[in-house]
């Protein structure tokens, strides 16, 4: 194995054109997989030296730009993210432990594709867009179309995520709740991200509910979210929507709970999250 450190996106793409090459962001997943011989790439292409992949920017009407190599630590400490994207800052601060957050990147977090991860549901709820470039050019992929299956995304192996953008939604409220019955440092059994707006009369004008840990990928509970639109917030409404969200979940049995338990927990934590996020 060799490790290279290109300093431009173009140079990195040239190296990734070789099918035995693999990009490395923060390396928290790759390090473990190489160590345990789950993967044996011939070449690891470190993205850390590519300045264009770093940086957090607020672009007015253009929303927010998060370079793919932005670390979770940078998200947590960014005044822009804490002020304008608080559910993302909150989720980033709860990933694993400080050692993971020091280096793990937002690009790696969306490509890794483990359904229990914390950032994917939050980014789904915020209508984030992945910007991908490769030998066939560049594409913008809404995250709603990005997660295709377990550890499988819409970005090909010879492509790079260059940035994640989040549209500006004035007045949006957003929360993330992670339910970790074992230990706080564990992956969540269920993660619930909610985002939405209320008008001056207190009517919900838009809502997104995204769930982590309860399907092969993070998912949007479309039907549950749509039930909320045009309604005034109430405990009854939130309970009904939460039941619909639970029906949309497709969890599997593992050490974090049985299928039935996880589905029940989706209902509980979605109801509570809706109340936290959207109550008057």
């Amino acid at each position: 194995m060799i490790i290279t450190r290109p300093t431009s996106v173009e140079a990195a793409l040239e190296e990734l054109a070789d099918e035995n090459s693999l990009a490395v962001g923060g390396g928290t997943s790759i390090g473990l997989m190489v160590k345990n011989r789950l993967i044996e790439p011939e070449r690891l292409v470190s993205l850390n030296g590519i300045a264009a992949l770093h940086g957090i920017e607020e672009r007015g009407e253009g929303g927010f730009r998060l370079g793919a190599m932005t670390t979770l630590h940078e998200l947590i400490h960014s005044p822009i993210v804490t002020a304008s994207l608080p559910s993302l800052a909150f989720a980033a601060a709860r990933v694993g432990n400080p050692r993971v957050r020091s280096v793990a990147s937002i690009g790696g977090a969306i490509i890794h594709g483990d359904p229990r991860q914390d950032l994917p549901p939050v980014l789904l709820s915020l209508d984030a867009i992945a910007h991908v470039v490769g030998p066939r050019g560049g594409r913008e992929i809404p995250l709603a179309e990005f997660f295709l299956g377990f550890m499988e995304s819409a970005a090909e192996e010879d492509e790079l995520v260059t940035q994640v953008t989040v549209p500006l939604r004035t007045g949006q409220r957003a929360t993330y709740t992670r339910f970790t019955p074992g230990s706080e440092d564990d992956y969540p059994t269920v993660g619930v991200a909610v985002a939405g707006n209320l008008d001056n009369e207190g009517v919900i004008t838009g809502a997104k509910i995204a769930l982590g840990g309860v399907d092969a990928t993070a998912i949007l509970a479309h039907e549950a979210a749509e039930m909320l639109v045009g309604q005034r917030p109430s405990e009854g409404l939130f309970a009904e929507a939460a039941a619909v969200a639970a029906a949309a979940a497709n969890p599997s049995d593992d050490q974090r709970g049985s299928e039935e338990y996880k589905r029940a927990m989706v209902a509980v934590w979605t109801r509570r999250s809706l109340a936290r996020c959207l109550a008057l």
Binding site: L32, K35, S102
Partner: peptide, 22 residues
């Protein structure tokens, strides 16, 4: 596997798990 913290070192002033760091 990055969980226990015994292997913590600082890299450029931030803590990392040296057991999973290439």
């Amino acid at each position: 596997v990055g969980v226990c913290g015994v292997c913590t070192v600082l890299v450029n002033d931030l803590p990392v798990a040296s057991c999973i760091t290439l």
